[in-house]
Computed example of a mutant assay.
Amino acid sequence: MTPELTALTLAALLQVVQFVTFAIPANRELGMGYTSSARDRPPSREMSDGTGRLQRAMNNHFEGLILFSIAVLVITFSDQGSLLTAVCALAYLGARVLYIPAYYFGWRPWRSFIWFVGFGATVIMLVSALI
């Protein structure tokens, strides 16, 4: 497996970890009645700030993972993997791992910087496929 595909696989597993990390406190705070419902109405209770941050970090990774997946697939299918794309893939993964505590603990401005590292690594991979 290429380094880029390995990073993508690990990023997908990270998404699973993020989902579980969010789902456990969300179920505790909102109750199973609400979380197992169709959610046609707002919850009767609010989530804690920390649980809300875990949810937003998870959703942010869903968004970033789409673009990163495209970059990895383009690099892999066009057989353009290089040291640069491998380093970028690992940078994306590392940034996403760091983003979770950065968001949870409200590290400003570091959370935005960490996000930008992952986004920038993805853009570099896409651009390198065109060169």
Rank of each mutant, 00 (worst) to 15 (best):
E29M: 03
I70H: 03
V74E: 00
V20C: 09
L54H: 07
F62M: 11
S44V: 15
I66E: 01
A38V: 12
D79A: 13
M47E: 07
E46V: 10
G33W: 03
D49V: 12
R39G: 07
L67W: 04
Q55V: 01
H61L: 08
G64N: 08
G64T: 00
A71W: 05
T21R: 14
S69R: 07
L30M: 07
A26D: 06
G52T: 11
L30T: 08
G52S: 14
R56K: 12
G31Y: 02
S48A: 00
A26S: 09
R41H: 15
I24K: 13
V72R: 14
S48W: 01
M32F: 13
A38K: 15
A38I: 12
F22H: 13
A57M: 06
A57D: 04
N59K: 15
I66R: 09
I24V: 15
A23Y: 13
A23S: 15
S78P: 08
I70G: 01
M58R: 15
I66P: 03
A57Q: 01
Q55T: 01
H61T: 09
V74F: 05
G52K: 15
S82Y: 00
Q80I: 03
F68G: 01
N59Q: 15
S44D: 14
P25D: 02
P42D: 02
F62L: 13
D79G: 10
H61S: 05
S44P: 13
L54N: 08
R45A: 08
N60R: 07
G52Y: 00
S36K: 14
T35S: 06
L54G: 10
T35I: 11
L73T: 10
F62Q: 11
H61I: 04
T35E: 04
E63H: 09
Q80W: 03
D40R: 13
